[in-house]
Simulated scan of single mutants.
Amino acid sequence: MPASRQDLLAFLDGLAIDVTTRDHPAVFTVAESTEIHDEIPGGHTKNLFLKDKKGRIFLVVALHDAEIDLKSIHQRIGAQGRVSFGKPDLLMEVLGVPPGSVTPLALINDRDAQRVTPIFDATMMEVEPLNFHPLENTATTTISRQGLLAFARACGHEPLIIAVSDKQGAV
């Protein structure tokens, strides 16, 4: 059974990671979340659940307006051949969230299997604080960069901080 929002917030509290969570109407896309960006300060993000030809899974996390070239990102993240978006059933199996709720906080659901390689865009990691869904798209959780890194490490993941965004092509 995947962790719930309450499980996640309790886990963060147990790690002494300071977060604030604000409820709002469900949002499924970056475009739908523009109003929330105006109300909640900090960096707002998008999350790409990607799979390479060998079946390796990557979670690429970048600022909401970052341009990411899917034709060349495999070279930056060390994927085998081009990447494609992971299917919804794989997303639910691995991270325990449906499309529209993808978040690096879902790494809580990959603590045992360690199937996901988290990639945090270097530009995003210059912004303070950062905002993510707390496993559901009806709220936004604000966390510091260091808190995000501490959380990922507590889940058994060492995130790769790589410059994946550029002005070459967009997702």
Results as ranks from 00 to 15, higher is better:
residue 4 S to Q: 07
residue 141 T to D: 02
residue 82 R to S: 05
residue 166 D to L: 02
residue 64 H to C: 11
residue 67 E to V: 00
residue 38 D to N: 14
residue 109 N to V: 04
residue 73 I to C: 01
residue 16 A to C: 05
residue 131 N to T: 08
residue 127 V to D: 03
residue 132 F to M: 14
residue 165 S to T: 07
residue 85 F to R: 06
residue 90 L to A: 14
residue 46 K to W: 04
residue 40 I to Y: 11
residue 171 V to M: 13
residue 19 V to E: 07
residue 79 A to L: 02
residue 153 R to D: 04
residue 49 F to V: 04
residue 15 L to N: 11
residue 103 T to R: 00
residue 63 L to K: 13
residue 80 Q to M: 15
residue 113 A to N: 00
residue 161 I to H: 13
residue 138 T to F: 03
residue 51 K to N: 05
residue 137 N to F: 08
residue 151 F to K: 09
residue 93 E to M: 10
residue 154 A to L: 12
residue 12 L to P: 08
residue 81 G to L: 03
residue 89 D to S: 13
residue 23 D to F: 05
residue 63 L to C: 07
residue 168 Q to M: 12
residue 138 T to G: 15
residue 100 G to Y: 12
residue 103 T to P: 01
residue 150 A to W: 10
residue 80 Q to P: 06
residue 143 I to Y: 04
residue 59 L to I: 04
residue 58 F to W: 03
residue 56 R to V: 11
residue 67 E to L: 09
residue 20 T to Q: 10
residue 20 T to V: 06
residue 130 L to M: 10
residue 41 P to R: 14
residue 133 H to N: 03
residue 128 E to T: 09
residue 159 P to E: 07
residue 139 A to W: 03
residue 52 D to E: 12
residue 89 D to W: 07
residue 57 I to W: 03
residue 40 I to N: 01
residue 47 N to P: 08
residue 95 L to K: 07
residue 139 A to L: 11
residue 118 P to G: 03
residue 169 G to Y: 15
residue 1 M to G: 12
residue 60 V to K: 00
residue 160 L to T: 02
residue 114 Q to T: 05
residue 91 L to S: 06
residue 84 S to P: 01
residue 89 D to H: 12
residue 150 A to S: 15
residue 121 D to F: 02
residue 126 E to M: 15
residue 71 K to H: 14
residue 80 Q to F: 15
residue 47 N to K: 11
residue 91 L to G: 00
residue 120 F to L: 14
residue 118 P to Y: 03
residue 78 G to N: 11
residue 157 H to Y: 11
residue 46 K to P: 02
residue 90 L to N: 02
residue 18 D to S: 12
residue 107 L to S: 08
residue 68 I to D: 00
residue 156 G to M: 12
residue 30 V to G: 07
residue 89 D to N: 14
residue 80 Q to R: 14
residue 52 D to M: 09
residue 169 G to I: 04
residue 67 E to D: 13
residue 97 V to W: 08
residue 70 L to N: 06
residue 20 T to P: 06
residue 141 T to S: 11
residue 22 R to V: 04
residue 94 V to Y: 01
residue 142 T to C: 09
residue 147 G to Y: 00
residue 85 F to A: 09
residue 106 A to D: 01
residue 154 A to H: 13
residue 115 R to D: 09
residue 17 I to W: 05
residue 88 P to V: 06
residue 61 V to D: 06
residue 53 K to Y: 10
residue 138 T to N: 14
residue 6 Q to C: 12
residue 54 K to L: 08
residue 106 A to E: 05
residue 142 T to M: 12
residue 4 S to T: 15
residue 41 P to H: 09
residue 78 G to E: 06
residue 26 A to V: 07
residue 161 I to F: 10
residue 59 L to W: 00
residue 58 F to E: 00
residue 139 A to F: 08
residue 75 Q to E: 15
residue 1 M to C: 04
residue 109 N to F: 04
residue 166 D to I: 00
residue 103 T to F: 02
residue 132 F to H: 05
residue 144 S to Q: 05
residue 144 S to A: 08
residue 36 I to H: 02
residue 48 L to R: 10
residue 54 K to Q: 10
residue 97 V to F: 10
residue 130 L to S: 01
residue 1 M to H: 13
